[in-house]
């Protein structure tokens, strides 16, 4: 199976405190990596390191190791990161947000209305995002998952603020993505109701980290 991410001996020190040390793992195509740990354990930091937004104190991350290394354009197109901050412009409507997100992702947004309907925002498309609820704003951000061509998704607490219907919808999308050979790295305090065939759990405790397979 093709590897999408390999991480070797990652360590991170934030503000003089070691978050995790010697963390090694890999994610292959079609796999889901669920990063677990208590608040402040460094889950978000780890995700940002994998996405390339942060540099680890030690160790290295290789994205798409089977692909030529000196092609940042490739891995940027194949990687989709949604962090705590949803990158939704408060002044823009759902439709406008979708359009600019697709542009930044390098995605073709063939039918924005279809995407809006899928994420349950049809009828709200012309209201500025700041007047929508937190869950609806989250849906705008997550709409990228329906248009992005990326193979690797890195999602930090994707279920935050979503209702049960939204969570279920998102897990259906996850299943379809994994079925099509995509991979997901996510953090969530919620247990997944959907059981992917290749689920890895990575629990970060303070300083020492353990990797368990299921």
């Amino acid at each position: 199976m093709a590897l999408l991410v390999t991480a070797q001996q990652l360590s991170s020190v934030r503000a003089g405190r070691t978050l995790f040390a010697d963390l090694s793992f890999s994610v292959s195509a079609g796999a889901v990596l669920h990063v677990e740990g208590p608040n402040g354990a460094g889950k978000s930091t780890l995700l940002r390191i994998i996405a390339g937004l942060l540099k680890p104190q030690a160790g290295q991350v290789q994205l798409f190791p089977q692909h030529s290394a000196d092609d940042p354009d490739y891995w940027r197109r194949q990687l989709l990161f949604i962090g705590h901050k949803a990158a939704v412009k408060a002044e823009l409507t759902a439709l406008e947000n979708l359009a600019i997100q697709a542009q930044l992702d390098g995605a073709d947004l063939d039918d924005p209305w279809q995407t809006l309907e899928t994420v349950g925002l049809l009828g709200l498309e012309d209201i500025p995002a700041q007047q929508l609820s937190a869950g609806q704003q989250r849906r705008i951000a997550l709409a990228r998952l329906w248009s992005s061509p990326a193979q690797l998704w890195i999602l930090d607490e994707p279920f935050t603020a979503l209702d049960t219907r939204g969570i279920e919808l998102l897990q259906q999308r996850f299943a379809a993505h994994v079925h099509g050979g995509g991979s997901i790295i996510l953090t969530s305090h919620q247990a997944l109701s959907w059981q992917p065939s290749a689920l890895q759990r990575l629990s970060i405790k303070h300083v020492d980290a353990e990797l368990g397979y299921e």
Partner: peptide
């Protein structure tokens, strides 16, 4: 709002 991160990660 996180748009700056997305610009950094954008293929452009």
């Amino acid at each position: 709002d996180g748009s700056l991160e997305q610009m950094v990660l954008s293929p452009a």
